[in-house]
């Protein structure tokens, strides 16, 4: 079995004794996507039965559009989580990037300069986070929590809590979010392309495979010659960049630099979706595609409940229960796999 996935098993030797277990769990990792896809279909089927309007194919294309910012931000956060680090600053990044983008529109009257400036906030903030965590040795959860407050506060001070309006009214920019190719929404296409690239990166490059080793056992990874610091730093830059792309998309959707974009716990929703997708919060376990399915499942639940006209109270309670159920089932499935393997060996 390991031979089918040489890419994953490459991470194993560096993780010492844990590597053997991981190799045996490969089918489980593989089945994770299928199990989650099943869960997604179950959720979709439920709403299709319950709400007539959820039956049209357009609903799922809309879902891809609505979930695009979450999917894109989740790519970077997932890779960091796999390496055992947190990035809580992505929610505030949505606002920061948007404000930088539209402010640059207004200052330069150039749409492209604005987009470039907006996208550059990603590597910039990512590099600051990465520097503080890797060079200064600061805890990533605390560092990015500090960054979450600091960035949001900076945006508040800067904008005086008023949305930055695009004075030029770039219709190409605002049209982008609603645009589509062959009925597939442009934001969704960007998300899918980025997911594909990230998946290739995580599974087909040495750097990507090392992520698991770093997250699994940092010291062992360092001993086996992986440049842990450098790689972690780059992952922070990547996470910042993904958040910035999501931020530019939200700016395109809203046509403004909105100071409160993502303030309703965007970072927590992203992390919850990823964990729902089977990624461990302590690093080294999980995979990107499952994490993306986790984002889509929570997105579908939210959309379905809205289509049903569920009240906020019901939405909150149901969302909480779905999260618990999904993570519980993930645990049960993993334990069953371990159990069956043990029995096979006996």
């Amino acid at each position: 079995m390991a031979a089918i996935h040489p890419d994953r098993s490459a991470a194993a030797p560096s993780a010492g004794g844990g590597g053997g277990i991981r190799r045996r769990l490969l089918p489980a990792v593989r089945h994770e996507e299928i199990a989650l896809l099943g869960l997604f279909l179950l959720v979709a089927a439920f709403f299709a039965v319950a709400v007539p309007s959820a039956r049209s194919g357009g609903t799922y294309l809309d879902l891809l559009r609505d979930a695009a910012p979450n999917l894109i931000a989740a790519i970077g956060v997932t890779l960091l989580l796999l390496a055992g680090e947190f990035d809580l600053s992505v929610g505030s990044m949505l606002a920061f990037t948007g404000v930088v983008t539209v402010s640059t529109f207004n200052a330069t009257d150039s749409m492209w300069l604005g987009i470039v400036a907006g996208l550059l906030t990603g590597p910039l903030i990512g590099a600051i986070n990465g520097y503080l965590v890797t060079v200064q040795g600061m805890n990533s959860l605390m560092t990015t929590l500090g960054m979450l407050f600091a960035l949001r506060g900076l945006v508040y001070v800067w904008t005086n809590q008023t949305p930055v309006v695009d004075e030029n009214g770039f219709s190409v920019f605002t049209g982008f979010y609603r645009g589509e190719i062959a009925r597939i929404p442009l934001p969704g296409i960007i998300a899918l392309v980025l997911i594909a690239l990230a998946w290739l990166f995580a599974t087909r490059t040495e750097f990507g495979r090392n992520i698991y080793a770093i997250g699994g056992n940092r010291t062992a990874a360092r001993v086996s010659g992986i440049r842990v610091q450098r790689n972690t730093f780059l992952l922070f830059v990547l996470s910042g960049t993904m958040a910035a792309i999501a931020g530019v998309l939200v700016a395109s959707q809203t046509g403004t630099g909105y100071f409160d974009a993502g303030v309703q716990g965007f970072e927590l929703i992203v992390i919850a979706s990823i964990v729902l997708g089977g990624v461990s919060l302590s690093g080294g376990e999980g995979n990107l595609l499952s994490a993306m399915l986790g984002v889509l499942i929570l997105g579908m639940v939210a959309k379905g409940l809205r289509l049903m006209g569920a009240h906020t109270t019901q939405q909150l309670v149901v969302t909480g229960i779905v999260m618990l159920l999904a993570v519980f089932l993930h645990g049960v499935r993993q334990r069953m796999l371990v159990e069956s393997r043990r029995r096979n060996r006996a």
Partner: peptide, 23 residues
């Protein structure tokens, strides 16, 4: 508006000082 920004900076400074001390 400054409240959030200053809170964030204080957290960053305290965690930075802690990291330096540990080293």
């Amino acid at each position: 508006s400054w409240q959030l920004a200053v809170n964030g900076l204080i957290i960053l400074v305290a965690v930075l000082l802690d990291a330096r001390r540990r080293r």
